[in-house]
Design a protein around this nucleic acid. Structure first.
Length: 392
RNA sequence: UGACCCGUGGUGUAAUUGGCAACACAACUGAUUUUGGUUCAGUAGAGUCCAGGUUCGAGCCCUGGCGGGUCAA
């Protein structure tokens, strides 16, 4: 009998996943991971890990499977939280959940599972696996979840073949309502529990408070860039020699607009953000067009159609490009069409990837709103996630 | 100094040439979301610069201040 360790979180998804694994005849063990103890910045109504652990334990009992707890908080802090602070400090917008999967769930948690002699680790992610044989070698595919609304393949975009080979996603072929239904039918204590939100293990926090633990408040200017200032920039033809102009954030300068307010520190803001600017009196809302942490300035524009919010492409440096399908990796000077997503739950967009020595340029057919450095771009071939990388 | 204009919630504007103040943005709360993105819904917030006056009743009319602006020299 094959042994599976399921990461039981205290939510419905992993509970149902555990149930299904058992149904399928696996030898299932539940492992609850503690990744964060602190309560700094935590929303007081949000529950603590102790509550989650208790409920997870109840689920395990109900399913009659062994239950254990591992404390991975040291690694989580080092590999996810520190990364988060570092990125924010550098003026980027990190995606801790992608890192959490690559560094924690499918790395050290996987190791813990292997120590328990597991053949696989399972999670409650909404995504699926497939297989292909290339040159006599089995290759694992990462596929979108059946529930298009919940698809979480994006969060796993940084996994490699090794990690994928050990992964199971028991609920990937189901839709959320079906998962809830199964939980109810089985009388699982998590059946009606609210879905988790916020940074995966830290939980729902007040981010400004959370970030201010390490990042200081640092007042600076908010500069409004008029829409018409963007006109010239929008005339750049889409061609190879303009890749650099098209694929990097607009290099706004203080004299491109006028000062209209003050902010708390450029590193607290992200492109596309609307809330938290504290500047009113406009006909349409203001959105962040760009941030400059070295000058400590944020640039904003009025209206959701502001041209400064849209860009044609993005760049991923060679070091940051990751191919789940190594066999499909582009060679230098090759290019290929893919469907690309630049943020979780964003629709896939048609684009062309151009591999050059320095990295990959991704040019979209349509201009994209809010391309933000630090987020991950993930490219798909239909349902299959082929590769990903950090947006420069 | 003379003439003219303006002074309304945090901000920008609106209010049949008199009947107790509307809209947008911001803020807050909630929904959605395993990223504070976005989006969506809801809540609160001024009694209209000050002092008098006319009127049954004034943000809207009159007088005088104060404050800001424009044009004049």
């Amino acid at each position: 009998m094959q042994k599976v360790v399921i990461g039981l979180s205290g939510g419905v998804d992993s509970s149902v996943a555990a149930f299904l694994l058992k149904e399928q005849g696996y030898d299932v063990t539940a492992l609850f991971m503690v990744n964060w103890h602190e309560r700094v910045g935590a929303i007081t109504s949000a529950c603590t890990w102790e509550e989650d652990a208790l409920i997870a334990k109840m689920v395990a009992k109900k399913l009659d499977i062994p239950f254990q707890i591992v404390d991975l908080s040291k690694d989580y802090k080092k590999r996810v939280v520190d990364y988060m602070f570092k990125e924010y400090k550098a003026g980027r917008t990190p995606n801790p959940d992608v890192l959490c999967n690559r560094e924690i769930k499918f790395d050290i948690f996987l190791d813990e599972a292997l120590k328990l002699n597991a053949d696989f680790v399972a999670t409650g992610h909404y995504c699926q696996k497939g297989e292909a044989v290339v040159n006599g070698k089995t290759i694992h595919k990462l596929l979108a979840g059946k529930d298009k609304n919940k698809d979480q393949s994006y969060f796993l975009c940084q996994l490699n073949q090794e990690q994928l080979s050990k992964a199971l996603f028991p609920i990937g072929h189901l839709e959320k309502p079906e998962v809830r239904k199964i939980a109810r039918e089985q009388n699982l204590p998590t059946a009606e529990r609210k879905d988790s939100q916020g940074i995966c293990f830290v939980g729902k926090v007040d981010l400004p408070t959370f970030l201010q633990q390490q990042l200081e408040r640092k007042p600076g200017n908010v500069i409004e860039v008029p829409a018409k200032f963007m006109e010239k920039k929008k005339q750049v033809p889409i061609s190879e020699e303009n890749f650099k102009k098209l694929c990097f954030s607009y290099p706004f300068k203080p004299w491109n607009g006028k000062v209209i307010g003050e902010h708390e520190g450029a590193h607290f803001y992200t492109i596309g953000q609307r809330k938290g600017l504290n500047i009113g009196g406009y006909k349409e809302p203001l959105f962040v067009l760009g941030t400059d942490v070295s000058r400590n300035i944020i640039y904003v524009g009025e209206g959701k159609q502001h041209p400064g919010l849209y860009r044609r492409g993005l760049f991923i440096s060679s070091n940051d490009a990751h191919w789940i399908r190594e066999d499909q990796m582009l060679k230098t000077n090759e290019n290929r069409r893919f469907d690309v997503r630049i943020r979780y739950r964003q629709p896939l967009e048609k684009a062309s990837l151009y591999q050059r020595d320095e990295g990959i340029y991704i040019l979209f057919d349509q201009e994209q709103r809010g391309i933000t450095s630090g987020q991950f771009a993930a490219w798909y071939d239909g349902e299959e996630l082929i590769g990903s990388g950090v947006i420069a």
